[in-house]
Design a protein around this nucleic acid. Structure first.
Lengths: 252, 252
DNA sequence: GCAATAGTGTCTATTAGACAATATTTC
DNA sequence: GAAATATTGTCTAATAGACACTATTGC
């Protein structure tokens, strides 16, 4: 076979699957939908669907994200920061037997969103929920866990890859702000880091670090809000996308 | 359309394209092949080909790599370090019009290899060459440059993404050793960093840094070799894949 | 000898992390 | 006042980067 003969190629289906992460009640949570059909009927899975014939991959991912959450997505290049989520390509999964019905290649995407109202079911009436990632991943892809059944297909692995991407990327980028509302305090940002990494951080050193990193945070007028104690200044995300120096995840 | 109806999906072709990087004569080079057919007949392109019906994506990339270079690939997990190259998935490119003939989704992979003998043409007699990446990327994807024509399809963008991945990944991983033969000196490793980053590094600080990072380098017996001056110790890559602390790319 | 590369030591400015102390709110 | 959070300041050990110096080869 000539390597680019367009008339002789195996047929593939191409889908996008979404790892949508948010921080709720001090825990890193992912969006899961219940499958209405075989295979894996009744199991929880990542949201996703087929890429349409004239749609690019990012658009397909953004469309699925909007269908599941109502969020509009924006690419990292754009400085937009409305109620949109961060969206980036994660990785592609294409083992021949990952879907029992046919050859499906899935281009997984990672979305980071601020805490949202209750998820709304997709148009096809599947139910959806936010679940802590440890609950969805309990014991690895092949465990018989206490928290329910494993995710459908290879979605546990995809979710694990997405979580690891988020954990490492907030070290050297300003991506943690994607988990916050448009205006937020240093303490709220710190609680994001603590939830995503699962560690406790020193509030004083954290404050000095983030406010001292140029381009990370921009003070929003003179302002305060409450969370319990003394009012805190409000910030929004600055223009910097790469943090230098990076935030360091504490040793294990 | 039900989101997982296997009987109604648009047909896609899935390919793998390869960014194969090496360091030759103190320059970061990529493998390019000349296309024998339309479209882009006679243009240079990245090596690649269709994924077969029962082949997973990594296997397809490893097969293409072997066909083009004779290298066997190993996954990062495996500790193998024969004459194999490092191989990892890079990203997936699927714009509807990236191939004028049909809908093609390409799962690009990044391979890092030590300096090799002259590239051998693939079985279909295409010619192949190592070219400095600046030459292949001159002026961006849409330049009319001095060094020839742009790469076919969206391969300039794929190559640029692969180069950036390599440049950033050698900061915090031991991946730079994938550009070296099985046994190498600190000076050879430093010249790899200098070529990939395009900067000059202080040999004394570099030596202290790499030999002081646990798990990065393992001295191979008592040995030396020559490169010009005083003989140097030989090392092989240690088990560590993540470097802590990282190598820091000098400021711009 | 000279040129070249390898390797070690030293100094300084910066920084991460520990933690004291103060400020401003709610109860 | 007590409790909670925010914010600033101080101290110390570790580190990056600059650079002097010595070692060992080929010519």
């Amino acid at each position: 076979m000539s390597p680019y003969d367009p008339s002789a190629f195996p047929p593939f289906a191409v889908t996008v699957d979404l790892v949508v992460l948010t921080v709720r009640r001090h825990a890193l949570c992912a969006l899961a939908v219940r499958r209405g059909e075989e295979p894996f009927q009744g199991c929880w899975a990542l949201p996703g669907g087929f890429v349409r014939a004239d749609e690019d991959l990012t658009s397909a991912a953004a469309r699925e994200l909007a269908e599941e959450t109502g969020l509009s997505a924006h690419h990292p290049q754009e400085a937009v920061r409305d109620n949109g989520a961060h969206l980036e390509q994660l990785a592609t999964y294409g083992d021949p037997d990952r879907d029992p019905r046919m050859r499906v290649v899935s281009v997984a995407h990672l979305a980071l969103a601020p805490d949202l109202p209750a998820p709304r079911p997709g148009g096809d009436a599947r139910s959806a929920r936010w679940a802590p990632v440890e609950e969805l991943l309990e014991g690895g892809p092949d465990r018989v866990g206490a928290g329910g059944e494993p995710l459908a297909f290879d979605h546990a692995r995809i979710l694990a890859d997405g979580v690891e991407r988020a954990r490492s990327k907030i070290e050297y980028s300003s991506l943690a702000t994607a988990f916050c509302p448009a205006e937020f305090t240093v303490g709220e940002l710190r609680r994001v880091y603590e939830a995503v990494w699962g560690v406790a951080l020193d509030p004083r050193n954290f404050h000095r670090k983030v406010t001292g990193t140029p381009g990370f945070l921009v003070p929003v007028g003179g302002t305060t809000t409450r969370q319990g104690g003394r009012p805190a200044q409000l910030f929004r995300a600055g223009g910097a996308t790469l943090l230098n120096p990076p935030m360091l995840r504490p040793e294990v």
